[in-house]
Simulated scan of single mutants.
Amino acid sequence: MDKQYTPPDVWTHDAENGGKWASINRPVSGATHEKALPVGKHPLQLYSMGTPNGQKVTIMLEELLALGKDAEYDAHMIKIGEGDQFSSGFVAVNPNSKIPALLDHSFEEPLAVFESASILVYLAEKFDVLLPKDVIKHTQVTNWLMWLHGSAPYLGGGFGHFYSYAPEKFEYPINRFTMEIKRQLDVLDKQLAKNEFLAGDELSIADIATWPWYGNLVLGNLYDAKDFLQVDDYSHVQRWAKAILARPSVQRGRIVNRDWGEAWEHLENRHSAEDIDKILALKPT
């Protein structure tokens, strides 16, 4: 049994007892230091890190480029472990201090877009792809996009935290979030048993949002929990996850704003297609 915890009458922040992220987590918002954000040469300026939420947007941008859209972008690394997201420049773009955040300089005043789902919808509408106009298909895509946006915090903030990052392992929260994540994988598996992609027979922003979380998870690229979660049981998710990973745009987008993994898996900052080409050229054949 876990050690019994009795909540105090009034909660206070204990920065010494929060595990790996204790030094940067805090119960208030706003900037901790003054620092301007870098700005590259393209209208689209992304400030992010290659976590699942960050991968959503870089994969989307690479898909847009593959479709021939004028979506060239600069992607600047925001090292959340070092508190870059609390700089004055980043907070001005996203007051919630979470990656990813996008600035579109194609307007007279740069337009700030934050929350990954909002960025995906914005880019899909701006470039008129990956989000159908037909009301039925549009709704099916947004249903699954919002399902992911509502469910992924369980995985990232719940299962991932207690299984991988918490300073101690506690049975109750691990069991609670494991049950939830397996239920979500079952929902996904049943949907993909009926459809090639999440919202039907065409790739959409729902797939781009979902793959970095659940695709990475079942392929063993997240939390090293394949055996624990018995991910091979979800055969339709496995089929879909492998098919999405095979897309060149996904292989390109997943490595951007990363500084971990193999040499061919990380590129801290991206300013041109050649930046990605050079890194992928290091991949063993």
Rank of each mutant, 00 (worst) to 15 (best):
M1Q: 14
K3M: 08
V10K: 05
A15I: 01
A15P: 11
G19S: 07
K20C: 14
I24T: 10
R26C: 07
V28E: 02
T32E: 05
P38A: 09
S48K: 06
T51P: 14
G54V: 00
L61I: 10
A66M: 12
G68C: 04
E72P: 06
D74C: 14
A75R: 01
M77H: 13
I78G: 03
K79F: 05
F86M: 10
S88M: 14
D104G: 05
H105I: 01
S106A: 07
V113T: 04
V135D: 09
I136V: 13
L145E: 05
H149K: 13
G157I: 09
G160N: 05
H161D: 14
Y165R: 09
E168K: 11
Y172W: 08
I174P: 00
N175R: 00
F177A: 02
D186L: 15
A199F: 13
A199R: 06
E202Y: 06
I205D: 01
T210C: 13
L217S: 08
D227N: 15
Q230F: 09
K242E: 13
L245T: 13
V250F: 01
R252D: 00
R258D: 01
W260F: 11
E265G: 01
L267C: 02
N269V: 01
N269D: 00
A273F: 05
E274V: 03
K283Q: 12
K283M: 06
